[in-house]
Design a protein around this nucleic acid. Structure first.
Length: 522
RNA sequence: GGCGCCAUCGUCUAGUGGCUAGGACACCAGGUUCUCAUCCUGGUAACAGGAGUCCGAUUCUCCUUGGCGCUACCA
């Protein structure tokens, strides 16, 4: 939020498509970690130069995701909340559009509001003979490419307009408002070499680089022009972006050179991959950060997980769980991998479980509540207990969560394995039999349990108490006593311990369920 | 097709010119007051292949193979 006295300035420059892609989020995160580590600035710039892909509210949604995940913006496009209050990471539902604001002195930060700037710089290159007008129609370009491909040549613009249209003809066409683009005149047979912060020396021959369109016929710039102009004007020191931009980097360097500008450092991040090792995509599962939040992954867990995909502090590190502050402290671009990393849900589940176990009771409940609300078994339970007040209900859920805490991978799983806490149970009476117990033994066990429960007062109905009393009665024949008890309480083969189940259900319900079990043998 | 990038257990990764190639997830087995989970212990599992440099290569170089990315008036 404040200007930093540091020349490190990095940016996250998404194009608004409607949601935050998890790969994109990792790029944002690495930029953020790098900026914070260096004590520099983290900027956001919205790259909305494609009119054909405009999506209402997409930019806001992107910024909201970023904000929710706790990546605070130092400069550029931001949510209004960011500047005024400090409830970072909380969604503010009361906000109304427009929700965005611009912070900093290098704006505007949305590219759609900077078209005059790009036009000016494009014209400058034309005037200097470093770029030229092209009036070719899309159809001709397509045909040309098809022909080149048929001849097994690399598809490249043939410079028809550069070579065949005289200056006065150009002026005439412009006067007639003929649709025109501006293309960069890429020099022939030059080696463009640069030092990538992650990959080291990389070089390209300009013979393989097409005369890029810089300005589209609708007056908007292409990514290449807008990106270079803005990174220069906004004094970006390191360009940290996905590996898919690597082949474009020589084009950008050519542009910096044409303008006579200082070239920033580049760092190309490895891609996030589907299980089949292709670029992480929607087709093979969820790719939006929102999807994972909706499934009940904690943002801290998601950040931790994503940070470790393609980066590791190294030096014999065996630590798996890192807070944001630890990530900032340890982050180093030199330790970023070159190879792509598969996005593995199993490990995310594990990490999320680790974070869930560390949650306080309050946080646990707060996180779980919205997920309970979605469940059918909860909805009907809720209706059935209309006489309970909110406090009582939350207390009950709190107890359920205390038990589920250690077996929860994500909040969407809440209650799923223990529906017997919320609905009536039914089971085959044979399920009550522990190993070779006789009918009489089963009934005796259940009756003993019932008596034990009745002896505990409502006030003493605490987990520790219930457990102690039951274990006392069980003596050394635990299986014989505990198995039928647990079955009577849950009707399930797998469940938490009978002590915990009885404790959650409460004295009344526990006794009722035991009675029901005994009735099955009467 | 052209150009470029990449290559350690199934997955995420540590690591070095000489190590029994380490950890985590997953998986398997055993243990922990009945089942499940947690937790603990143990186990299976990797340097893509071929040359070269070197006393010695997983590590350095080259080639092959494979994977991926880019190849638009999209970013």
């Amino acid at each position: 939020m404040t200007q930093k006295n540091n020349s490190t300035r990095v940016r996250f420059a998404p194009s608004p498509t409607g949601y935050m892609h998890i790969g994109n989020f990792r790029t944002a995160l690495y930029n953020y970690l790098f900026a914070k580590k260096q004590g520099g600035s983290f900027l956001i710039r919205i790259e909305d130069t494609d009119q054909t892909r405009f999506v209402e509210g997409a930019a806001e949604q992107l910024l909201e995701s970023l904000y929710f995940m706790g990546l605070s913006v130092d400069e550029g496009n931001s949510l209004k909340t960011n500047a005024s209050d400090d409830t970072q990471g909380e969604r503010n539902e009361s906000l109304t559009y427009p929700k965005t604001i611009e912070i900093g002195n290098f704006g505007p930060y949305a590219q759609s509001e900077r078209t005059d700037i790009y036009k000016k710089y494009a014209m400058q290159l034309v005037a200097e003979g470093k770029a030229y007008y092209c009036f070719c129609e899309p159809q001709r370009l397509t045909e040309m490419r098809e022909k080149q491909q048929a001849e097994k040549k690399a598809p490249m613009y043939d410079r028809y307009c550069l070579q065949n249209i005289a200056p006065d003809q150009i002026n005439e066409k412009l006067k007639e408002n003929c649709p025109a683009t501006i293309r960069l005149k890429v020099p022939k047979n030059e080696i463009i070499e640069f030092d990538d912060l992650i990959r080291g020396k990389i070089s390209f021959n300009t013979d393989n680089i097409d005369d890029q369109v810089l300005l589209k016929s609708d007056g908007f710039p292409t990514y290449h022009l807008a990106n270079v102009v803005d990174d220069h004007l906004m004094q970006i020191s390191e360009v940290i972006r996905g590996e898919d931009w690597l082949p474009s980097t020589p084009k950008h360097i050519l542009l910096y050179r044409a303008f006579g500008w200082e070239i920033p450092q580049f760092a190309h991040l490895p891609l996030l991959l589907n299980p089949d090792r292709s670029k992480l995509s929607k087709r093979q599962g969820d790719v939006a950060v929102e999807d994972y939040i909706k499934k009940g992954y904690l943002k801290e867990a998601l950040i931790n997980f994503v940070a470790m995909l393609g980066w590791n502090p190294g030096e014999g590190n065996t630590q798996e769980i890192f807070s944001m502050n630890e990530l900032i402290e340890k982050f180093d671009l030199k330790k970023v991998h070159k190879a792509g990393a598969v996005f593995d849900l199993k490990k995310l589940d594990w990490i999320n479980g680790q974070y869930i176990k560390k949650l306080s009771d309050d946080e646990l409940l707060k996180n779980a509540l919205p997920f309970f609300a979605e469940k059918d078994f909860f909805k009907s339970w809720n209706m059935k207990h209309e006489t309970w007040n909110n406090d009582e209900k939350e207390k009950y859920l709190q107890k359920v969560l205390t038990i589920e805490k250690e077996r929860l991978a994500k909040f969407s799983d809440v209650g799923e394995e223990n529906k017997f806490f919320f609905q009536d149970i039914s089971y085959d009476k044979e399920m009550l039999r522990w190993k070779t117990n006789t009918d009489e033994e089963i009934i005796a066990s259940l009756q003993k349990a019932q008596i034990t429960f009745e002896e505990i007062s409502e006030n003493d109905w605490e987990l520790k108490n219930v457990e102690e009393k039951l274990l006392e009665v069980a003596g050394d024949k635990r299986g014989d006593f505990l198995w039928p008890l647990r079955m009577a309480l849950t009707g399930a083969q797998k469940s938490p311990s009978p002590f915990e189940c009885a404790w959650v259900l409460g004295k009344k319900e526990a006794i009722l369920r035991i009675e029901n079990a005994i009735k099955m043998w009467a």
